[in-house]
């Protein structure tokens, strides 16, 4: 599937995925700015959602990683919010899910890889980190490297495949029966799958960090 270039900035191509990523970023930034301006001691309305998101993600991270995991909460929180909104973007008219692009999911998976491995190096030191690749025997070094690369690939392809596959199924069904079933399927592939895939990606990210520490 070809990348759909929308326009260029200073000669740099901007695809529809990147454009929608910027839209999602704008929504998240403006929304966060608006809804955190006047936090009330007794929460009302959307403040519940914000508190639930921050407290919920922190609870998940601390439960799995412990108190030292608090440093990763902003990363995991951003990951969860971005993927959720990116997944939902596909439900909008003319909307594009950036997470239905392998480039986006690979970027996220590589960032999870870098964060988890960087945390291990910081926690245990470079020597202990490198030694982990030859445990229990030196001969297992290629397998260990392949294992780590596989984690990144599976992490990226799982989200991409689910979103991209859901989009293709919806597209095919739209062509055959455009007025009856798509509404229900849209809810399933857009809403429920969006939430489920976000949860899966975030949980895997937490686990990948946790096993490294």
């Amino acid at each position: 599937m070809e990348t759909n270039i929308v326009f260029h900035i200073l000669g740099m191509p901007v695809s529809d995925n990147v454009l929608w990523t910027w839209i999602i970023m704008a929504v998240l930034i403006v929304g966060s700015w608006i809804f955190t301006r006047n936090l009330k001691r007794i929460p009302t309305g959307f403040q519940h959602v914000i508190e639930l998101a921050v407290d919920g993600i922190e609870g998940l991270v601390v439960r799995d990683i412990g108190d030292k995991g608090k440093a990763f909460v902003p990363f995991i929180l951003t990951l969860g919010l971005f993927i959720l909104f990116a997944n939902f973007a596909g439900m909008l008219p003319m909307g594009v899910s950036p997470t239905a692009s392998l480039s986006t999911t690979a970027a996220l998976a590589v960032l999870v890889f870098l964060v988890s491995h960087g945390a291990e190096i910081k926690e245990k030191g470079l020597k202990a980190y490198l030694k982990g690749y030859v445990d229990p025997f030196f001969i297992l070094l290629p397998l260990n490297i392949i294992g780590e690369i596989s984690k990144v690939l599976s992490h990226a392809f799982r989200l991409y495949g689910n979103l991209f596959g859901g989009g293709i199924i919806l597209g095919i069904i739209y062509m055959f029966i455009p007025y009856v079933v798509p509404g229900v399927l849209n809810v399933w592939f857009g809403f429920f799958q969006g939430i489920i895939q976000t949860a899966v990606f975030v949980m895997l990210a937490i686990v990948y960090i946790q096993v490294r520490l």
Binding site: N17, V18, L79, T104, A106
Partner: peptide, 9 residues
């Protein structure tokens, strides 16, 4: 796009 999305994130 991979690099752009990394920076965006």
């Amino acid at each position: 796009e991979f690099l752009q999305q990394t920076v965006n994130f």
